[in-house]
Design a binder for these strands. Structure first.
Lengths: 219, 219
DNA sequence: AGTATTTTTTAGGTTTGTCTAAATTTATTT
DNA sequence: AAATAAATTTAGACAAACCTAAAAAATACT
């Protein structure tokens, strides 16, 4: 894979996040996300079109080519792996990791990212619950959310426990709450944000604190 | 501390490495180190002089101001901490770390570096044996000498391995001779210049060839 | 000291990525 | 379908960081 400038990488990454199945990304849309002027977007689109990273026809918006998507995914991979590293190893809080990862993601060394991934144990989700693409750009579908964010009566699967302290794990064990289990939220009590959940056809109540550390995926 | 461009940071860092107590750095000297043309150096010196980071008089060479030195040391700190991280945690070999650290050193987040330092246990030497400056730019100053030059019974710390070949590293590994270890020379055999050394309270004999490649610092 | 050589600087140009302002195309409204 | 508004592109400019070639200063050499 060739080398790209920080600017090009940011454009590709942002287009990836903006584009949907059927709709092209518009110049103004991208300009706003990147905090740049529309004229700058047009300039860059011409360049990226030349490099065959986007499909672009004047006045018609643009989208990534398969090659462009591949590059975007590798940047997103770097970003999310660094976020994971910052949170997990350096103990950054979840809301501080993004800014620093924005810089780290542009360090281009395949070997660095592969070794970082290995060192971290090939995590599948970053600290915001977003899936981390693998070397081939493949990743889990859907976003990981905390149990607290799960809408009422939506069935989901437990896939990750954050902030793994001994006490928390012990508590989960006692309540027989395990990774992989099917779970749904039946009631939310606004007084203390505790939840009534349904697990293995059994109802129980869990605290806000606990719910925030249980991550689930739809489906 | 203000923010500097990658280019400015590379200039400051390189001037720091080139300047000596009494001699200014010359335009050509810096041009060669940075693989740039002399004209580019002059351009940048004007800019850095404006920012009061170097003392520069046309045709007279230049050197860092105290402020410039402070910035240079913080870049060197970042570089060496990342080198340590790459070698120690990601298991890069000593000769691969520099190139990647050249990129990582320009990620500017005070918090990142402080947390990285803490995570690594505030190491004092990087994988090449060079001292790592602390937050205030202070670092170990002792002069590096080869083990062959170390006086009898003086305790010293291993800080640098020269001429690192795979064989040498393997050999050191086998003898459990590591950077940072405390070491002293007990006897010198003039027949073949081999040494009897004390390492971790154990006596062993090493060849002249090996001793010449091990660098230590007093203290 | 006067000339030749080396070093350094100046002048002007290039590339990348940005901008503003004007022109153009597309979309919306009456 | 015109007229108006919005979105997009073009044209031209600018800053950073580099370059080449020519000029100027410092140094070295008879």
């Amino acid at each position: 894979m060739l080398n790209f400038s920080t600017s090009e990488e940011n454009y590709l990454k942002t287009i990836f996040h903006l584009q949907t199945k059927d709709e092209n990304v518009s110049t103004n849309e991208l300009a706003e996300k990147l905090k740049a002027k529309p004229a700058s977007i047009t300039d860059m689109m011409k360049k990226l079109k030349n490099r065959k990273l986007v499909n672009y026809q004047p006045y018609q918006g643009f989208r990534l080519t398969p090659e462009g998507k591949k590059v975007a995914l590798s940047i997103i991979r770097r970003h999310r792996l660094w976020e994971y590293f910052l949170a997990e190893k350096l103990k950054f809080s979840w809301d501080e990791v993004h800014e620093v990862a924005e810089q780290l993601e542009h360090v281009s060394s395949k070997k660095l990212i592969d070794k970082l991934d290995e060192y971290l144990g090939s995590p599948k989700f970053d600290p915001h619950g977003d899936p981390i693409p693998d070397t081939n750009g493949k990743m889990e579908t859907g976003k990981q959310i905390s149990l607290q964010e799960l809408p009422l009566n939506k069935t989901a699967r437990i896939c990750f426990i954050a902030n793994q302290s001994g006490l928390l794990l012990e508590h989960l064990n006692e309540k027989k709450i395990n990774i992989g289990a099917s779970i749904a939220v039946k009631r939310k009590f606004s007084y203390d944000d505790s939840l009534e959940i349904k697990l293995d056809n059994k109802l129980m109540t869990i605290s806000d604190q606990l719910a925030k550390n249980i991550f689930v995926k739809h489906g």
